[in-house]
Amino acid sequence: MKSIKLEINGVQHEVEVAPWRTLLEVIREELQMTGTKEGCGLGECGACSVLMDGKTVNSCLVLAAEANGKRITTIEGLAQAERLHPIQQSFIDNGGFQCGFCTPGMIMSTKVMLDDNPNPTDDEIKKGISGNLCRCTGYAKIFDSIRAAKVAMAASSDGRGGA
């Protein structure tokens, strides 16, 4: 067992982990934050996407020990109290999900995309979420949601969806 420190959504955690435990397992099982989903467990579906030091990772492929000392953001860290992040609101308003299982990962990938490039073209939007599988929507309404989110974020005071 190894003791690691993780900052998740601004909160410091110290956990004892076996060397083979993944970041996803630690988030879901040790810390009981189940917003991040496990689809394939092999890095193919993107449902487990979280931010690690500002970059998207498939948390099922990251060993917990590798995340030691890193800053992690999960879907639970996006809304500020009752106020949804503009990406979250946009996915609701534009029908950007159906069953909702891929949604936490999809929204995290969208956040990184829009943080890196606040004004993506339609092609860049498609590429930005190409690591996230959705079986329900056929993606069209996800594209609509991201296009609307980029407008909403540009209109926010800090240009990143902040208050």
Partner: peptide, 9 residues
């Protein structure tokens, strides 16, 4: 069920 689904709840 929108809010539940976009917040991971």
């Amino acid at each position: 069920d929108g809010v539940e689904k976009v917040t991971g709840k």
